[in-house]
């Protein structure tokens, strides 16, 4: 194998807890392999820190295959790093070269308070989901799956929206820390399907209201959210949600 060990200088945000001040600490690694994922590099750093008696960097991660949405870090200013459509766990060190310096920080947003180091609290997303991110069908009530045909086009669009992994990169990328793309993806999924129609007005009104209440900012249509989304959720979902929101506001007023 053409394994080359790279030297990498890492500047990592260290913060003991929510109420402590944080700062960037510098660490040097001299055995970074190009096939490593970015998180495996942090594993290597952590193992070294433990051996040296230091405290490892706390970070959220789980599936390491780009689907659970748990990893959340801003790498050189970009949520999840430089590659399009890629979570931090799927970013590989072959994207870097020997001698590079990389800065790793938590997702920054008022609605995502830092817990420790690069871990943040994203439970606001769950709370938004609780006020409308569902179809009210209790177990046992379902008709046969073929009772209602759904056009392939709509089903595919609904799927594209539903691929959101709830990581929060959209919020971290937005200058206003808006959660519009996250909320719009969920609203769109149901908006596009016949099963989502009965509750559509309440859904969009309640979810948007909750988003505002949780302290997320407003949308100014700059599109940083979609550009940094690891699942490349389209801005069209925001347009769709805006239309749904207007319709619902008139109807419910």
């Amino acid at each position: 194998m053409s394994d080359q060990n790279m030297k990498i200088k890492l500047r990592v945000w260290r913060q003991k807890g929510p109420t402590y001040p944080g700062k960037l600490e510098t660490y040097e690694l001299d055995n970074v392999n190009e096939h490593m994922s970015f998180l495996e590099m942090i594993d290597v750093l952590n193992e070294k820190l433990v051996q040296e008696g230091g405290e490892p960097v706390a970070f959220d991660h789980d599936c390491r295959e780009g689907i659970c949405g748990m990893c959340s870090m801003t790498i050189d200013g970009n949520p999840h790093g430089p590659n399009k459509g890629t979570t931090a766990c799927q970013l590989h060190m072959r994207n870097y070269k020997d001698g590079d310096t990389i800065t790793v920080e938590p997702f920054r947003a008022t609605a995502f308070p830092v817990i420790k180091d690069i871990m943040v609290d994203r439970s606001a997303f769950d709370r938004i989901q609780q006020v409308g991110g569902f179809i009210s069908v209790s177990t046992g009530n379902a008709p046969d799956a073929h009772a209602v045909p759904v056009s392939k086009e709509k089903a595919d669009l609904a799927f594209d929206a539903a691929t959101c992994i709830g990581c929060g990169a959209c919020v971290a990328a937005c200058k206003n820390a808006s959660a519009m793309l996250f909320v719009a993806a969920k609203v769109s999924q149901y908006e596009l399907l016949p099963q989502g129609q009965p509750e559509k007005e309440d859904r969009v009104l309640n979810m948007v209201a909750k988003m505002d209440e949780e302290g997320f900012g407003s949308c100014s249509n700059t599109g940083a959210c979609s550009a940094s989304c690891p699942k490349e959720i389209s801005l069209e979902n925001i347009a769709r949600m805006n239309r749904a929101y207007s319709r619902a506001s008139f109807k419910k007023r």
Binding site: P143, K152, A158, A162, Q189, Y190, Q195, G196
Partner: peptide, 18 residues
């Protein structure tokens, strides 16, 4: 049936069926 009712977007054929 339950998943479709919940809005799980399974793959569909052009005729709209699963």
């Amino acid at each position: 049936d339950q998943a479709v009712a919940q809005g799980v977007p399974f793959a569909r054929e052009y005729g709209g069926y699963l």
